[in-house]
Design a protein around this nucleic acid. Structure first.
Length: 294
DNA sequence: AGCCTTTGACCAGCG
DNA sequence: TCGCTGGTCAAAGGC
């Protein structure tokens, strides 16, 4: 079995070439968020939720942070010695620290630290601990399954991801979960009379959504397609005015998941495909088995 | 046969 | 009010 370092170096070579463009970072060890897990976050080309154009020098942690939740969370994490200790378990294999809403979850191949994590969660009044096995994690690595989405939030709440690397001042580095939008899914498909109501709701946020709640990635269109870890259904395609290429519309195949994405050839950078996500998943990624079946 | 994509129609917002 | 535009629906077609 390859080491983490080996995988990272291989990934940088193989995968970074897929992501290009002015102001775009390819995957480097700095850009990779959860490098070993199925969730791999990349610096987006445009984070419309922050109205920023990202550059390689601007990490997520350089974007806007001034929210009460952020400060509160930082205090929680920094005050936890156990959490720091856990963060020191570098290189053994893998770990994930993420905060979803008010919830902190960590995963590690080293299950012996489960109790520690649980303790941290309890101290911080956070609730969930997940353990991934070494086997299923490496299965994901072997297939180079990448998730280029912002880390999804089960709660659909304001969410934050916490990188476990240290800043110069010794604080934990954090990265925002980009979409702040809260979707409420309908358990039942709306009836005809309700569909238009729903449409009006959607259209009401149409312009806001375009500038505030989307995250755009650019992908070289001459590279092997990379799964983002989720299953998508195409539900439409439109020719866009003044655009040579049609725009395709996709929604997540998971029932009641509100996220959608649009794919079209980039008008800004030739030879690139623009992938824009609206909203966020309200569920975990499907199993590798389910992905393969598709 | 079932799942997914295609594609024309429909709708609301906007100027 | 009307036409344009983009987002979505859903029947039909393809695999």
């Amino acid at each position: 079995m390859d080491t983490l370092q080996h995988f990272l170096s291989e990934s940088e070579t193989d995968i970074s070439s897929c992501f290009v463009g002015e102001g775009i970072t390819g995957i480097t060890s700095e850009d990779i968020w959860d490098p070993i897990l199925t969730q791999v976050l990349l610096t987006p080309w445009k984070d419309h939720s922050k109205a920023n154009i990202m550059s390689p020098q601007e990490g997520f942690h350089d974007t806007v942070w001034e929210t009460p939740n952020c400060c509160e969370l930082e205090a929680n994490i920094s005050d936890s010695k156990t959490c720091w200790k856990f963060a020191d378990l570098e290189d053994e294999y893998l770990r994930e620290s993420s905060v979803q809403g008010s919830e902190l979850s960590m995963t590690s191949s080293d299950t012996s630290h489960c109790s520690e994590i649980e303790e941290v969660n309890q101290q911080n009044a956070l609730t969930r601990t997940e353990i991934c096995t070494q086997e299923n994690l490496w299965m994901s690595v072997d297939n180079q399954r990448l998730n280029i989405m912002p880390h999804s939030s089960i709660e659909g709440d304001d969410s934050w991801a916490v990188d476990s690397t240290y800043e110069g001042d010794g604080s934990l580095r954090k990265r925002p979960i980009m979409s702040k939008l809260q979707f409420k899914s309908n358990p039942l498909k709306p009836k005809a009379t309700e569909i238009m109501k729903q449409k009006r709701v959607n259209l009401h946020s149409y312009h806001e959504r375009n500038v505030q709640e989307s995250v755009e990635f650019l992908l070289r269109n001459n590279t092997t397609p990379i799964s983002d870890g989720y299953i998508w259904l195409k539900y439409g395609q439109k020719n866009i005015k003044n655009s040579m290429h049609p725009r395709s519309y996709f929604k997540c195949a998971s029932v009641d998941c509100p996220i959608k994405k649009q794919v079209e050839e980039s008008s800004e950078i030739e030879g690139c495909v623009s992938i824009t996500y609206f909203g966020k998943h309200n569920h975990l990624p499907p199993s590798l088995h389910a992905l393969r079946r598709r």
